[in-house]
Design a protein around this nucleic acid. Structure first.
Lengths: 337, 337
DNA sequence: CTGAAAGCGCTTACAG
DNA sequence: CTGAAAGCGCTTACAG
């Protein structure tokens, strides 16, 4: 494979132009497919390139074309509180589409100062555009990207109409799931969620209320507790929930659900006999629980793919094909039987 | 902030050279700190740059210096089977050190053809070096990188002395943990592990045997089952383990441990009364279990940091400071009480 | 249809 | 101590 390499290095446009007795511009045109060129010489050049294993220097191309073919991917850096599998899947989706389109993915995972980091990348011209995952409400990142006119797409909800975004249809999904519970006879639910500066918390809550309203179920009968993170408020919240005889605990994500399940188990409350439990987000934590937990399931990889495709379309100035939002399923398990 | 920008664009070396009435080479020297320059003019130039917000074009620098300041990070793409938190932590560590040193991290997460992907990156000169996570035994990636003489470091075990690597000291950790069990009276263990083409499986097993040998515990009394992945062999393995009256089940990772716990629970076998359970790898799955599970805990972020630092040292041609391997702890919980 | 030239924004010997 | 020049490897008007 490297036999020819050792004889003559063929790693610049000049090398191969000299060898073929043509101008390097001609070679460039053959590769890019731009400009006029007889099919004959193009074929000859392409054949030679293929055979000698030449690869254009991406850095030089970047400089000449003022494009890097790099995408910056901003990962939120909140340890533990978020679903690891979600990020991995999403990342997989992004990388896949990027790779298919000749782009590479540059990670931005700066705990302290994400804005400064992405700013440096932009100002140094190391990336062409940005994908931001799970943005917070009014994220300063969005403001920065808009001001600098950097092409970007957001994975997660936005109210900003100028911003390209993809998101799970959390509101509809949570509405459907809640409606499903109501149709099964649930009347007095406790909704438990995390940080209320997280956009997704809001969407899910809206879906929850949508279903209650549609079913004519009084909002006053339902209980809502937000900002329940790691261990802080859980005990007091659960005491209230049980004292007020909720018939179903609706968890906004699997991490909260896991805490709830442990609390119930140690308190001797039996699921689903004494109280039903569901989660708006599914992960391995719930799948393996006993009893297994009814939950919504979203397709994170599809989300990543959609985000990346939208960004690349936008980078190319293409119309921005609209994608159907990746779907969701309600997975019925033992915790609501 | 962008007030001056709008008046005069100061985004190339030429712009600022013209403005200051000096040569662009002089400006370049002021920034890089290389070459001779009077402290005075250097200060003047630096002050101006600071004030007008100029940032060098990293692409042009790359071309001129033949360095990209990008690191390729290869993530294994085996969904589900691996610990998500491990990757996230490790990634965090890598990104942190990279960022501190002016490097950026380019993801390689190509399910189908990782070697081709990294090859393209190298041949296109988009990266200076590579970090490979949790490589498989005899990975073709390693062969490729060695052949191409690309600087790289491996996160995980290698027997290859020419290769720079960082790893948890799995063998010692597993030996210590096993020794600890033996000192608590365990005599007949069942070791259950995953794919035996995974290096880590071997290290952990070695540590296990080390402790048995040192304690004079006959290897014949112990049981070992490898290649127990998702659901395939678990049931038959557990039947054998229980039939042969193991007093402790040693799981090679938390995923296996989780499956084991579920099996035990549904079989009515009580932990730790009927059998003790430990895991060689800790994650949220085990921490929240009831009973909580005794386990080894490794510091993945430290591993990522060490790997990245070693790579950067090697890129700089520096001596390659040796790092102490990131530590581990034995976390005693209820499953061995 | 092909070639010669200028340019992308930097760095680095080499003169002066 | 500073400057003028060549070069990194490509692309893209512009001539011929």
């Amino acid at each position: 494979m490297s036999a020819e390499h050792t004889e003559k290095k063929m790693d610049t446009l000049n090398d191969i132009a000299r060898e073929l007795g043509v101008n390097k511009a001609t070679v460039s045109k053959a590769i890019s497919g731009k400009g006029n060129l007889s099919a004959q010489t193009r074929a000859r050049i392409l054949a030679f390139i293929d055979q000698c294993g030449y690869r254009p220097n991406a850095v030089a191309q970047s400089l000449a074309k003022n494009q890097t073919y790099n995408i910056g991917l901003m990962m939120p850096d909140e340890a533990g509180a978020l679903d690891e599998a979600f990020f991995r899947e999403c990342l997989r989706g992004v990388c896949k589409i990027a790779s298919n389109n000749g782009y590479d993915v540059l990670m931005v995972m700066d705990s302290e100062r994400p804005v400064e980091h992405v700013a440096r990348l932009i100002e140094n011209r190391k990336i062409d555009g940005v994908i931001a995952m799970r943005s917070l409400v009014n994220s300063p990142v969005v403001g920065f990207l808009k001001e600098k006119q950097v092409p970007f797409v957001i994975i997660g909800p936005t109210s900003d109409k100028e911003v390209i975004s993809v998101d799970n249809d959390n509101r509809s999904a949570c509405r459907d799931m809640t409606a499903c519970l109501i149709s099964q006879g649930v009347r007095r639910m406790a909704l438990i969620g995390g940080h209320d500066n997280n956009c997704v918390t809001h969407s899910r809550m809206k879906g929850f209320w949508d279903a209650c309203d549609q079913a004519g179920l009084s909002r006053n009968w339902q209980m809502v507790y937000l900002n329940v993170t790691r261990d802080n408020r859980l005990t007091e919240v659960m005491d209230a929930v049980l004292a007020q005889k909720a018939d179903c605990i609706v968890c906004m994500d699997d991490y909260i659900c896991n805490m709830v399940l442990i609390h119930l188990r140690t308190s001797g409350v039996e699921v689903p006999r004494d109280v039903k439990v569901v989660s708006f987000y599914d992960s391995i934590l719930l799948e393996n629980n006993i009893p297994s937990v009814t939950s919504l399931h979203f397709d994170a990889a599809a989300l990543g793919r959609a985000a990346c495709q939208k960004l690349i379309d936008s980078l190319r100035g293409e119309p921005g094909n609209d994608f159907a939002l990746p779907g969701y399923q309600i997975i019925q398990r033992d915790s609501t039987k």
